[in-house]
Design a protein around this nucleic acid. Sequence first.
DNA 1: GTATAAACGAGACGGTACGTCCAGTCTTGAT
DNA 2: ATCAAGACTGGACGTACCGTCTCGTTTATAC
Lengths: 207, 207, 207, 207
Amino acid sequence: MTVSLAGRGITPQQPVRGRPRSEAVERAIIEGTMKLLEDGVPLAEISVERIARTAGVGKATIYRRWSGKEELFVDVLRSAEPDDVELPGTSMRDDLIALLESLRRRGLANRSSAILHNVHAQMKSSPKIWAAYHNSVIAPRRSLGLEVLRRGQENGELRADLDLELVNDIVVGPMLVRAVLRPGGELGEGLAERIVDTLLAGLRPVN
Amino acid sequence: MTVSLAGRGITPQQPVRGRPRSEAVERAIIEGTMKLLEDGVPLAEISVERIARTAGVGKATIYRRWSGKEELFVDVLRSAEPDDVELPGTSMRDDLIALLESLRRRGLANRSSAILHNVHAQMKSSPKIWAAYHNSVIAPRRSLGLEVLRRGQENGELRADLDLELVNDIVVGPMLVRAVLRPGGELGEGLAERIVDTLLAGLRPVN
Amino acid sequence: MTVSLAGRGITPQQPVRGRPRSEAVERAIIEGTMKLLEDGVPLAEISVERIARTAGVGKATIYRRWSGKEELFVDVLRSAEPDDVELPGTSMRDDLIALLESLRRRGLANRSSAILHNVHAQMKSSPKIWAAYHNSVIAPRRSLGLEVLRRGQENGELRADLDLELVNDIVVGPMLVRAVLRPGGELGEGLAERIVDTLLAGLRPVN
Amino acid sequence: MTVSLAGRGITPQQPVRGRPRSEAVERAIIEGTMKLLEDGVPLAEISVERIARTAGVGKATIYRRWSGKEELFVDVLRSAEPDDVELPGTSMRDDLIALLESLRRRGLANRSSAILHNVHAQMKSSPKIWAAYHNSVIAPRRSLGLEVLRRGQENGELRADLDLELVNDIVVGPMLVRAVLRPGGELGEGLAERIVDTLLAGLRPVN
DNA sequence: GTATAAACGAGACGGTACGTCCAGTCTTGAT
DNA sequence: ATCAAGACTGGACGTACCGTCTCGTTTATAC
């Protein structure tokens, strides 16, 4: 996902006055932060000062764009977000698997870079930032999931009397448990498929 | 849950020399931290310095007991942890509901104090601390859940061919999704029951 | 005293290409600086940035003309310098009084604008600037004083065996002491006359 | 002249609470600043940050004692101030020479360390600081001078009808002119004597 | 009782980062 | 080429905490 200069701020309809902000610098900052994260620098040691040093940029240049570390992290995370999921559309089962699979890969990618995951955690300390992230990343996926389920009900793949919100949480939950509560593993290949099929098969004995 | 002086530290086998540590001071520190959290002070603004001020205690007195803010938080969280769940034992369904219900109440309690939730998040930044918390709080609940499911398989309440780890995640997941991803709500009464019953009833149409 | 554009800089013999520098802008800068000084803004708070803001001018426009704050100050001071002294020429005594009187008025004028006096002090921090100011302001007055004294020796108003440099310092000194060491006062009317007459009368009892 | 910890601040009658301030650190700061000055570091480049680095001290430690660079300079200057003048007491002439001679040596010493002189200038930018310096350094010397002159009038060495304040300025002035207006020189040996004798001999021809 | 010795509150200490401001330079579009 | 505007790197500002280190005082044993 790419974040453009204009994408975040106010659309500058008024004629540009003075030297315009450099997109190159913006990229350098985001990528510098990403690099620190990937190099395994503990989150607590990532200061604005250090980001500036890493990116070869003045501190003021960072503060001119973001009001602090946290806001910057939102954009860093956004830029690391995988592209939109492509749903096969063949069945609810396949769509759900595709959805979970993309979640799984994100979890893995983040884990491979070890800490993005924590940035996530960190962000929750400030509600405003969290809201921004929630709106731009989490909410879209959620509504996509609901849509898939709704179609499943129409198809007869899903019981009609179910609360879709709840079902969505049931589907997404297991992946989250493993990513959040047991960092470091267990997001093996085929997990998405196993979750969905287990759910669809039901938990009770078939008798 | 109460945390005793001896419970955490090194058992001082050698005869005690000099003035012993004051338990009252220990309580003052933990409760002072709790108070800050409950007063809605943003996590980032809770410094050791401020905790000391709030508790009317010297900084060294804190560092004598904990190696830093994070370690202290573990104990604060532990002390806020509800007492052990009591399982009715009447059926797997009832036990699972009891388990989820205790999770739900914890989520709500934390929400009422709004931020404990974030301490949780914060802690993940330091793996050591996280491990400590994981071992003392998360793991026990997890194995309790697995035990309940195992008994369910014996009873015939649960299919015998299921991966219990996965099922446990499926059961716990929805509650976590709501607590973590949608802070501020939707942990209504009866949620535990709805989750368990939805899962047991299965997602497919009954035809 | 007026400072012309050509007076300071390099005479641009080559035909002017592009837009010529605006004299109005130059005046605006100098007068803006003066205004800040007169408004009692502490010298340390007068930044190039602020001068630019006050004068409604870009920073580059200032740097295009002066290499920094200090050089600018020289011109500001020069522009505030009173016009050349007019000596009556009737006697050494009268000429010395005229000289001191002009010094006194300068001191008072500067005091009335409270800070020019300090610019003076500030300038000494950079030898180059000080030299420029010394050459254009202090040295001319000094040689004028020496000339007056020389004529006094010719007239018989002054002992022939005196070191004129020393006498000049003796004449000028008291005024300086009061202006520099006791800012804020004691440059009353008639002071010039009292100094000169006291010196000419001698300090010893007349017996 | 030595500046003690207690000398500047509030007399700490109240029992000392917490770790007391270190006099060694205090000395390190003042001497570090002095060193920078003596090494010819331009005054404008002497930042609190650099002083701290030089003295091997935290910035806060400096700000704990002085409110800023300027206040610190007062103490640095005070500590560089030569010890009190010793007057021979044999005659007004000899006493005045002793007084001027101490002034001259101070001027030279400062020159040798090249910039202390400018610190002086710098200080004038802030009236409060200047007042502090004036009271503790300048005023005492001034009243000492007046006292000497008063005794001179009693002895008959000085005309009884003279304004002593003015005479004092006349005596001190020439030395100041040379130190302030012509930095870099002309404070040769024997200058004090020449000034006093020239003044006492009178400027008019003896006829 | 009276040492002894650790704990205690307070706060100084060397550091590091904060977020802001200014120095000088550079880059726009417009004059 | 100049202008106003304003971005750029760099670095100092004065503040707040970090984790450690004295201080003087308090409080338990152990002698």
